[in-house]
Design a protein around this nucleic acid. Structure first.
Ligand SMILES: [Mn+2]
Ligand SMILES: [Mn+2]
Ligand SMILES: [Mn+2]
Ligand SMILES: [Mn+2]
Lengths: 233, 233
DNA sequence: TGAGACTATTAGGCAAGCCTAACATTCTTG
DNA sequence: CAAGAATGTTAGGCTTGCCTAATAGTCTCA
């Protein structure tokens, strides 16, 4: 009836809880368990707020958490996380493909819409979009039953000079400036690249992209995932 | 950064405040000023909650309000109301036309999505949908600058036996059962009808709709708005 | 091992939104 | 006009979700 009731009804957490689960799930891909500080930084909140919420999420069975030992998603939490990522990335596809937003713009509106989207709506949306497998940044979209597609990609640093590959994914989808920078240089999912040089000294990578030569720093390079140059038959 | 901050940034109220403005705006079309009880009933909340929020909305300059005298939207409140109705009805069009939801299903999801939708997103959506003039229930969609289209419709009760007309709008868009009832009988915006009888006793209306004879009660009949049978040239 | 730097929790407080119970006003109607 | 009904507000309390300041645990390194 009321907003809160609606949320209770739909069998998920509050938007706030969902934000936490989203952040924890993303951070778990880097290191697990996830520390309070990392979550606080990622959400722009104070550590006490995070401590408090971790206790609550633990109570709700979404994360397993012991004081001073960090947090990690439970199976239930992982399911919610997959559902969130699915909702988020399908919205990104819609915003990009149908409404014409650039890939550097889609993250914030998707992050709002995802919490206001029921399963019924998102499944209709998936059908409307033709069940896309990835978001505009090349990130995989989990299936409705929470399964993640196989990910077969490497980092740029694993490539050797002169070799070619195709960009399959760009990490840090929320960093609009970086995405703009990359898009300006044609470095987007699907683009073919050739590694011209990886500097020993500071990791600067020089690429050939569509006939042009592009240099990118180590940090940005580490956000690129590549796959084989030809689409797998 | 945080949800609350995001909301503050976008220069509107919280979703909760928006719900109140939405309810007050809708009730104002029936009678003004709007009483606390009516708002409470419409939102499914207690009267003290409404009293409290009216004080706050009054502080924010969205409603003018004096104790025991009811509330009415200020100009600022009216602008927010128009923006909300625009967002709500554009979402309804999208849900109905693109995602395939029935007109009796679109109200609740639209009511969630509208509060998570920025102006940028809704204007792109309007363009995507071809700037529709009405929602699936035939209700007008205000323009981006808050103007309401001219409404040229009559109630069924103003019609005489034997006359024909076209349904242009159905009120109470949130009453799924009633909408289902009407859709089952072909009584939807755009349908041509002939008034066969309006009972003096209890106001029951007998209609001819697409060759079939349909009877509806006084209350349901009062929710139908009709216009001339031919589309105005 | 022990000081300092991190990391994390506890304590205490605040605003938004909701509630019930109690009280106050206004309307209706004989 | 004087109930009594209807409407509306006040009082007091709750949860969620955030904060700062203070405290406590952990890690690193001389
Ligand atoms: Mn989000
Ligand atoms: Mn993405
Ligand atoms: Mn709403
Ligand atoms: Mn509608």
């Amino acid at each position: 009836m009321t907003q809160a009731n609606t949320r209770a009804t739909r069998g998920r957490g509050s938007p706030t809880e969902e934000h936490y689960v989203e952040a924890i799930g993303a951070l778990e891909e880097l290191a697990t368990p996830v520390g309070t500080a990392a979550i606080a930084q990622s959400l722009g909140l104070s550590m006490p707020s995070v401590s408090e919420m971790l206790a609550r999420l633990s109570n709700n069975g979404l994360v397993s958490y012991a004081p001073y030992s960090g947090a990690s998603l439970t199976d239930k939490g992982k399911r919610l996380f997959a559902s969130l990522v699915r909702r988020h990335r399908l919205w990104e596809v819609f915003l990009n493909r149908c409404l014409g937003f650039g890939w550097e713009e889609v993250y914030p509106p998707a992050c709002e819409l995802e919490h206001a989207t029921s399963d019924a709506v998102i499944e209709k949306m998936a059908e409307f979009l033709g069940h896309p497998g990835t978001c505009p940044h090349g990130a995989p979209i989990p299936s409705a039953d929470g399964k993640w597609p196989e990910k077969r990609s490497r980092g740029l640093s694993e490539m050797q000079d002169g070799h070619t590959a195709r960009i399959v994914r760009v990490l840090r989808e929320d960093d609009a400036d970086c995405l703009q920078f990359l898009a300006d240089r044609g470095i987007v999912p699907g683009a073919s690249i050739r590694v011209l040089d990886i500097a020993e000294f500071d990791g600067t990578v020089t690429l050939g992209v569509e006939g042009a030569t592009r240099a990118i720093g180590r940090d940005v390079a580490s956000r690129l995932r590549v796959g084989p140059d030809q689409a797998p038959a």
